[in-house]
Design a protein around this nucleic acid. Sequence first.
DNA 1: ACCTGAACACCGTTCAAGT
DNA 2: ACCTGAACACCGTTCAAGT
Lengths: 193, 193
Amino acid sequence: MKTSAGKQERARLSADDWAEAALDLIAEQGVAAVAVEPLARRLGVTKGSFYWHFPSRDALLQAALERWESVEQQDVFGKLEAVADPRARLRALFQMVAHEFKSHVVYSALLKALDHAAVQPVIDRVSQRRLEYLTASFRQTGLGRDEARHRARLTYAAYVGFLQLNLQLHTARMPQEEFEAYVDHLTRTLVPE
Amino acid sequence: MKTSAGKQERARLSADDWAEAALDLIAEQGVAAVAVEPLARRLGVTKGSFYWHFPSRDALLQAALERWESVEQQDVFGKLEAVADPRARLRALFQMVAHEFKSHVVYSALLKALDHAAVQPVIDRVSQRRLEYLTASFRQTGLGRDEARHRARLTYAAYVGFLQLNLQLHTARMPQEEFEAYVDHLTRTLVPE
DNA sequence: ACCTGAACACCGTTCAAGT
DNA sequence: ACCTGAACACCGTTCAAGT
């Protein structure tokens, strides 16, 4: 038999296998945890073999992040296309962001690791896209050009800031009820009627 | 002569000298740049001597951050005590934050390095204090207890998010005029009339 | 009291050699 | 085409020895 059963059996690896393992590590333990030697141990090979697939640790990080970037693109905004009314769409977006914590895990990990050179450009691109989407949505609710741009920026900043605060307040974590009230406050304050 | 002139002359160092040098490095190059060996080179000693002052690199980081924390405490809120009217005080705070970039340099560096264990608790404490200050101020403008808490959270999240976005948009940096318009939008949207 | 110098561990990177 | 094993550089940490 060439590649039959067994747990310890390890097929030879591809660059994609490394990138996927790296992305898992980012979600679990953050960007700093992506290290060649530990990853190699986890994959059951020696660290030397890594350099057949990637020229550097940074290249691996980039590959992992590009993988995430293309997935999140559809994930976040795909579901919103169904909602026609712009005000309702914005409210739906707030609800989505508030209740789907899984999709923010990697994003949060990246926000905490902006001092890594590979992370910045990815977050830049993602932020740019989201800002434009928000601006367009606010525009559609009837806000003027500048007003829509500013409101979008404020909204996105609130999102980023919330992730920061939320993950940091393990200690003084908000109870569910207060959290819902906060989301409601955000919606009332930021979405035009 | 015991300790006369000369550039290459290096008095013996104290723990405080190391902490200050570390804080400078954080402001200039970020948390990741705080490394024992390069710091030792910069200070003109060998890295071995570092361990007479601190038990670990992390302890140095903590010392540097505590130093910053106690300074920023007075810096940010000290000047606001003069303004009696709570609405005017909030507007003044917005203006201060918008135009004093220097005081945010370290804070931004820390936000980008939240994956370092020593950074989290410092940011936690600072955020907690600022949130409480904002809550109290909104309370004084006449908002109800919950409304004030939520508004404070939104405001602070907007601040944190803005730092993130601002530093990241080197590419698409806002021109001065648009920036002022944005601050104005924030003030109108967030400060009760 | 503060510093040197040599040592070790750990991780990134290279590369000749294996299959 | 993919992997091993040994090597080297760099940084964190320890410690005996110096002043």
